[in-house]
Design a protein around this nucleic acid. Structure first.
Lengths: 356, 356
DNA sequence: GTTAGCACTCTCAACCTCCGAGTGCTAACG
DNA sequence: CGTTAGCACTCGGAGGTTGAGAGTGCTAAC
């Protein structure tokens, strides 16, 4: 789907490729349409501007460039960026100094994936001067590791669910018992549940609950709480993404193409409605490697002027999350790809270290 | 401090007050400087525009109005808004229909303060078409209700801390033991801790930990984990606000005064740095009632073009949080105050119901 | 295939002009 | 003495015009 809009383009002359690359890189830095003369001046192409003009015209026919009006320079199309990303780019690895700095930052923070993915978003935002995105790692189907019940008052308890994959879920359960329920009772219910449904998935836990008999003390209560647990797990499993944490949306706001706030505002609303992001994240997790979504390749109209670079992290068997970057279509892909690749790699290391 | 900029203004003529109110209300709806003629036309004042002009001049001398340039209409100053809010406004209670709708929404959502305060922010954003803000309820000093330890691997455990006030804290603790630590051991450590430090505050828990003796099994481990718990509690107690949840910042973006994105961008960054908001929230919690912070009354330069209406919720003895609204200085204060008042009242009810 | 030369196109910034809104003042009025 | 009509004056902003500059596309020569 990432390639939905990709046209099959005949193999391009090396020189033509070089010029396409030059146009894109010039445009990425200046945000201005690029003219033939500027290319000759700033990139030692060894040909005259007239020749360059001919090639630019070819590239335009191929659909890789456009110009906004007759007497303006060239601007890459989405297809142009796509071609660039696919076949021209040498991605830029993150400088060693910065790698070290980031490792240090991750060392500083509380040792928990909860904090890591937030830090990842913040770090990516800072490094790429775009918006950083990150989702917590989430398994395809979660396993219960521990159940805990704490009385809130006579008729309600706080239910705490620790999952094997590290996440913690909390809920308040109403206890529809005739008698007020005390903490000791809750302890015994929790113990029973821990005995019967630990290490199980939602489906298996549900099955195990039916095995409870009247001989088990507090059977009724255990069933009630157990049913709630199963519901929580099912909801959790069903959601493709639990939450998308973003940072540095302001950075994107700085770009000249978003100077007039309305477009960006639309992007913001598109982000608030998590549906599309959830889908992308799912795609990336499935693909298992870094993916780039360029401008118009995004279905939502509001997202057609931004690009995303997303990479999965985590371990296939366990939980998987996504980190990445959202920026204007006119972004530095080599740098973004390099940075996202590094951060996702780092997250992998950390998660591995935790579950080793 | 909320009144830092308030000038003491001699008692104002009733008619003068009416005209000030008219100017403000007109300006709030049109976002255009208000001229004398427009006032006469749209508000049956029973006097000529010339008379109104004289009064406008007085109000300008009093510092309640300005005009942006010679031949423009009048615009309220921050002091003008302050006077209006303090002595002119009849706050507008939320219509009964909307009250019902909102109660219904809160009924729909999972029964937990965690969800409530988010929903409060969202609701406020929707009702006032400004940004909604909310912080979770937080006690001045928290009490431990329950400690739980779950093994992550041989050398690390997940520490779960349930507080009497409802919040849950989680952390990963490294277990610096010679031997790998198994879950049964952790269970016994947790049991020991639950026995000794439940219902205690950070300071008392710290004291209780020193009472552990070599006779207690796993004393070393219990001290280690206990120390970590105390640190977590101390950090939690120290923070004035744990987190500020905001929604609908986009609404503010719609206002014409923020059409050119730069100003709003600054407001955004001011919000990301939670320091000032934390201070305000503290003030509001201390004052114990709804507060309005108008434009230049805010210290941070970036916040000088926005106003906040904030109200506390929760129970003084227990945990206290804040809900409110952030909008352009040119906002409808009567409506905002009425809405915030309703939502904070509703939150109070809910919290009371939970801890009854 | 490449290049110089040139006519042509189109945007953008600068500048002007004019209209309308609104003020502030003065003098008259009840 | 407060209120009002009348009027000169100010100023911002919309609309129109112009000229410079950037860049193209074409043609003809190399």
């Amino acid at each position: 789907m990432a390639r939905r809009n990709r046209r099959t383009i005949g193999p391009l002359d090396l020189r033509t490729q070089a010029i396409l690359r030059a146009v894109i890189e010039e445009y990425v830095t200046t945000a201005q349409p690029v003219g033939s003369q500027a290319l000759v001046d700033r990139y030692g192409l060894g040909v005259s501007s007239a020749t360059v003009r001919n090639i630019l015209a070819e590239l335009e026919i191929a659909g890789l460039l456009t110009h906004p009006h007759t007497s303006a320079g060239r601007v890459p199309t989405d297809a142009g960026y796509r071609f660039y990303v696919e076949s021209i780019v040498d991605t830029v690895p993150l400088p060693a100094v910065e790698q070290l700095m980031i490792r240090h930052q991750f060392g500083q923070v509380e040792f928990a994936s909860e904090h890591w993915f937030r830090l990842a978003a913040t770090t990516l935002a800072g490094l790429t001067r775009s918006a950083g995105l990150a989702t917590p790692a989430k398994p395809r189907s979660a396993h219960i590791r521990r159940v805990d019940l704490v009385a809130v008052n006579d008729r309600m308890a706080s239910l705490i669910l620790v999952l094997r994959e590290g996440a913690i879920k909390q809920a308040v359960v109403a206890l529809d018992e005739a008698e007020p329920v005390e903490q000791p009772t809750l302890n015994r219910v929790a113990a029973l549940l821990n005995e019967r449904i630990t290490e199980l998935t939602a489906a298996r836990a549900d099955a195990a609950l039916t095995d409870l008999t009247a001989e088990d003390s507090f059977e009724r209560l255990a069933r009630h709480v157990g049913a709630r647990i199963v519901r929580i797990l099912r909801d959790y499993d069903a959601a493709a993404v639990e939450e998308v944490f973003s940072d540095g949306l302001l950075n994107v706001m700085g770009a000249p193409e978003f100077a007039h706030s309305d477009k960006l505002r639309q992007v913001f609303s598109a982000l608030e409605n998590r549906a599309y992001l959830g889908q992308l994240v799912g795609d990336v997790a499935d693909a298992g490697r870094i993916q780039v979504f360029i401008g118009g390749e995004n279905q939502p109209l509001e997202m057609r002027e931004v690009s995303l670079v997303l990479a999965p992290y985590g371990r296939a068997g366990r939980a998987i999350g996504v980190v990445g970057v959202l920026g204007p279509t006119r972004m530095s892909y080599p740098q973004a790809i390099g940075t996202v690749r590094f951060v996702s790699g780092l997250m992998n290391e950390l998660v591995d270290h935790l579950y080793a």
